[in-house]
Design a protein around this nucleic acid. Structure first.
Length: 344
DNA sequence: AAAACGATCAACCGCGTTCAC
DNA sequence: TGTGAACGCGGTTGATCGTTT
């Protein structure tokens, strides 16, 4: 395995290490330590660069390296840590004695990532993949909405945006967390329009929207600023894009602020920090900035099954996604308005 | 039997950070 | 404070192995 030996222009050897080279490197480090990696090859009699020596030692020759398959417990630990740390392989490796960052990275890319994807989870967020990500073309179309709208009369623009608002302000009592997130995305999108140069340069349209905002929300409109009556939204930062800088959400759900790489209470890899949010997540704000992390292998709610990954197949989790109530996005995207966009 | 394909993983590369001067 | 060298990290590559057709 590896590449055939060859040299770079400086004459230093590259490619796979021979047993003789391994022996030289090991002997030298055992006697003198590695010291300066740059100086090491010369001192050890190796025709390699220091970087190559360091890598060979830290990933292969180090005496405390554990070899062989990852155990279930190690696998679970990696999942838990990745949910919190993201692709910080070296940080993850510090919690798995005998495993190198390279090994963990490879294991993640070849096994765990695929496993998560097959189970319907986004390997980066550790959350169920939403329709949003299956509708990339529609999102791209949304990004182009401004341009499209500018080609219509302002009355028509207002009508279409009003339609969007009506969809977004439907009651959410029975929606799942998943669709709540999707709705939040839709809200954020609309809100992004509010501050866009597009609306500020289309005063007629902006005023029209203000007057068209339905008054059936619990929270009254505080002022005449478009959308300002909508409550503050807390969404995972990993869901935020340039389109969604302002955070507006349906007010009957709340989200814990999460930084990139953090996991959510709904992550299957960590024990729930709160009751299962199958319908509504209530007041998670007290947990803001809480970085409490459970690293040990987690158990399911009942404490009987290790987790989703240990189930014989992933159909259950996939079915859960399929059974999620239709989101506002599907309504939005079925609208002829968006179908028109597709034709562009 | 052999070709095609996918999986695996050691090693390389480039970039950001740290440190010494 | 600025600069360059050294280091460390994450992403990517590509040869080899195993499986499927």
């Amino acid at each position: 395995m590896g590449r055939p030996p060859f040299s770079d222009e400086s004459g230093l050897k590259k490619g796979p290490w021979t047993p003789e080279e391994d022996q030289k490197l090991t002997n030298h480090i055992n006697k003198h330590g590695h010291g300066s990696w740059r100086a090491l090859p010369k001192l050890a009699g190796l025709n390699r660069c220091g970087k190559s020596c360091r890598l060979r030692w830290s990933n292969y020759l180090r005496p405390d390296i554990k070899r062989g398959k990852f155990s279930q417990e190690e696998e679970q630990t990696i999942l838990n840590l990745h949910a919190v740390l993201g692709n910080k392989w070296s940080a993850i490796a510090t919690h798995l004695s005998g495993r190198t960052d390279n090994e963990i990275k490879n294991f993640w890319n070849t096994h765990l990532k695929k496993k998560l994807i097959q189970m319907g989870y986004d390997p980066m967020t550790h959350r169920p993949r939403t329709d949003i990500f299956n509708s990339l073309q529609h999102l791209i179309a949304l990004a182009n909405l401004k341009e499209l709208i500018e080609n219509h009369s302002w009355e028509e623009q207002a009508m279409r945006l009003h339609y969007l608002q009506n969809l977004l302000q439907q009651p959410h009592n029975n929606i799942s967390t998943l669709s709540a997130i999707q709705n939040a995305e839709a809200y954020n999108f609309l809100n992004s329009l509010k501050d866009s140069q597009f609306l500020s340069t289309n005063n007629n349209l902006g005023n029209h929207i203000v007057h068209q905002i339905p008054l059936n929300l619990d929270q009254p409109i505080q002022d005449s600023t478009p959308f300002s009556h909508l409550p503050e939204l807390h969404t995972p930062s990993s869901f935020q894009t340039s389109l969604y800088k302002d955070k507006i959400r349906p007010q009957d759900t709340e989200f814990t602020i999460m930084r990139q790489g953090e996991t959510s209470p709904t992550s299957p890899w960590l024990p729930s920090l709160s009751p299962p949010p199958s319908l509504v997540i209530n007041d998670q704000r007290s947990k803001e900035n809480s970085l409490e992390v459970v690293i040990s292998p987690c158990l399911s709610e009942q404490g009987k099954h290790p987790n989703y990954l240990s189930q014989p197949d992933s159909e259950q989790s996939l079915n859960n996604i399929e059974e999620a109530p239709p989101s506002i996005w599907s309504d939005l995207l079925e609208d002829s308005f968006f179908q028109d966009i597709d034709k562009l």
